[in-house]
Design a binder for these strands. Structure first.
Length: 334
DNA sequence: CAACTCCTGTCAACGTAATG
DNA sequence: CATTACGTTGACAGGAGTTG
């Protein structure tokens, strides 16, 4: 289809005005431009639409009359399409696709989402929880606008907004012999079975924690959910190393859990908001990011709980909390 | 990101027909 | 026949898209 709606528009204007020059004046283009468009259409369709009367304008041929009636319908359809698109844009509410790592989402997302929905009731948020790899793929493809996850190795396609830094702790059953202490050393754990959350980012983090120490962790069980991990630890099946924790110290079976500080200076985990480098910060994404950054100010990384929540676990460690108070500059999308 | 291609438009020159 | 109006053609410029 090597003709344009513009050419059809010129054709109709010539028919309406009875001359190429008059049509060109009405269209605010030069006369040769209109002449060329008409000639092009006549060549494409292999038909003569106008009879030229030198110095007296043009008249429609019978074929040209039929052709122009069709051309008018094509232009009407094109205008209807434009109006339809405009109506769709007006009727569709803005949407925001939020991704979160399923292991840290429960700790942060409900609170942030509650604030966001209160501030932006016009926006419909949808949530996707998954693994780091899956979230990155969705950010790249545009299926997810913003994702709550751990800071990554340098990832050129993703830009991150730092939220909070968490120091790992050791989770033990209250009946465990080490549970009466305030601190636990990595050396004391290497002969104990580790209940491992079976996620690549956790394994990497655990490797970095034990890196440089003589012993290596002995993996007792691999599980994919935090609740099962807590349940196994509470039942005495082993210990776990985690970053976030719920308000209560019970597992499903009501066995009690305790959190112990790690004596060594172990690597911390940085939690960030990630957005696609290519998409940048759209209006909705930016609004969500601003609320998340503001919201996180009331999160206490020491107790790992929100300041306005009641009865946090009695636990503390010497790590100085790092909470972002300045919103970083990130390129806005066009 | 530069080089290239294609499209669209303008300008100037020219041809043709009507008109006084 | 000179003037006027109008359409066509060719040269050229600028913008957008494509390609390596």
């Amino acid at each position: 289809m090597n003709y344009t709606l513009q050419q059809l528009k010129y054709l109709i204007a010539v028919a309406d005005h009875g001359s190429v020059s008059a049509a060109a004046r009405a269209l605010f283009v030069s006369q040769p431009a209109v002449s060329a468009a008409i000639l092009h259409l006549e060549q494409i369709f292999g038909m003569q639409c106008f009879v030229r009367h030198r110095a007296r304008g043009v008249t429609l041929t019978s074929a040209g009359r039929d052709f122009i009636a069709e051309a008018r319908q094509v232009l009407d359809s094109a205008e209807n399409l434009q109006r339809h698109a405009a109506r769709l844009n007006e009727s569709l509410p803005p949407r925001l696709s939020i991704g979160c790592l399923s292991t840290i989402g429960p700790c942060f997302l409900p609170r942030i989402l509650e604030r966001f929905e209160r501030a932006h009731p016009e926006t419909i948020p949808t949530i996707f929880d998954g693994t780091t790899e899956c979230l990155i793929q969705r950010l790249r493809s545009g299926d997810t606008d913003v994702a709550l996850m751990y800071d990554l190795q340098p990832e050129p396609s993703i830009q991150t907004i730092p939220l909070v830094t968490l120091k790992p702790y050791v989770l033990l059953a209250r009946t465990h012999p080490l549970a009466r202490k305030n601190f636990v050393s990595l050396d004391q754990l290497t002969d104990q079975p580790l209940i491992l959350l079976d996620r690549p980012e956790y394994e990497d983090h655990l490797s970095s924690i034990f890196d440089g120490y003589a012993g290596k962790p002995q993996i007792g069980h691999r599980v994919t959910t935090l609740e099962l991990l807590r349940g196994l630890v509470a039942a005495g099946a082993g210990y776990a190393i985690l970053n976030t924790k719920p308000l209560h110290d019970h597992a499903y079976a009501s066995n009690r859990l305790v959190c112990l500080q790690i004596r060594e200076d172990v690597p911390v985990s940085r939690i960030v908001l990630a957005v696609s480098q290519r998409a940048g910060l759209r209006k909705n994404t930016r609004a969500f990011a601003e609320i998340a950054v503001d919201c996180i100010k009331s999160f206490d990384p020491v107790s790992c709980h929100w300041n306005d929540a009641s009865a946090p676990l009695s636990f503390g460690h010497p790590l100085q909390p790092q909470v972002v108070t300045e919103f970083p500059k990130i390129a806005e999308s066009a």
